[in-house]
């Protein structure tokens, strides 16, 4: 997630609710310091979650505005109290709120780049192979090496056919 004032990654995320109005602030290190907000140090994840949970408790006004997961009925407020999500669908339902939290807890990571279940589109190795082929294809096209590009495209088509109905690659 980016800083509200510049293109750097935000390290401070604050959600406040005043008179039923929710406002979010995301700031990079520099802008947070400029605004007089203490920048969190690299804390263990559990501690981080506990803090979020605590801040959730003190802001009781958030109750009415709390989003709810349509699959399992869990509210985001409830998640902040327990630290545990209700179902896989919660990741979609709370996507926006979770993104900042996960990014902080995972040292800035925003996307999965590890193993993929075979049914969802391939093993670890195939995923890596696809990434590499796409990069090579771009290079070949840029260098106007059309014969090489055609071969790479064939390989990619082949891999992707095996994958069907694999999910589209998310832009990282």
């Amino acid at each position: 997630m980016k800083c509200d004032h510049c293109d750097k990654a935000a390290v401070v995320h604050e959600v406040t609710v005043k008179n039923g109005e929710k406002s979010e602030v995301h700031l990079c290190k520099e802008h947070a310091a400029a605004a007089g907000i203490a920048v969190p140090t690299d804390q263990p994840v559990n501690q981080l979650l506990t803090q979020l949970v605590l801040s959730g408790k003190t802001r009781s006004g958030a109750k009415a505005a709390s989003p709810t997961c349509p699959s399992c009925g869990l509210t985001f407020a409830r998640f902040r109290q327990s630290g545990t999500l209700g179902c896989p669908g919660c990741y979609d339902a709370f996507g926006r709120q979770l993104a900042g939290l996960i990014e902080r807890a995972q040292c800035g990571a925003t996307h999965h780049t590890g193993k993929t279940p075979r049914r969802a589109g391939g093993s670890i190795d195939r995923q890596r192979l696809i990434h590499r082929l796409v990069r090579e294809l771009d290079e070949a096209v840029a260098a106007e090496q059309y014969e090489r590009a055609a071969k790479l495209r064939d390989q990619l088509t082949c891999l992707e056919r095996d994958d069907a109905p694999g999910p589209a690659e998310s832009a990282g």
Binding site: V45, N46, L49, G83, T84, L85, P88, Y91, D92, L98, L101, I102, A105, Q106, A109, H111, H112, G114, K115, T116, P117, R118, R119, A120, G121, S123, P167, A168, E169, S170
Partner: peptide, 28 residues
């Protein structure tokens, strides 16, 4: 994991990876 996965579908999203009850385990 491969063997279990050949018989069971795991909750997975292309963005977040393997979906876990606590977001601190999500991804791999």
């Amino acid at each position: 994991d491969d063997k279990v996965e050949s018989r069971l579908d795991f909750a997975f999203s292309s963005r977040w990876g393997y979906l876990t009850a606590c977001p601190t385990n999500v991804g791999t």
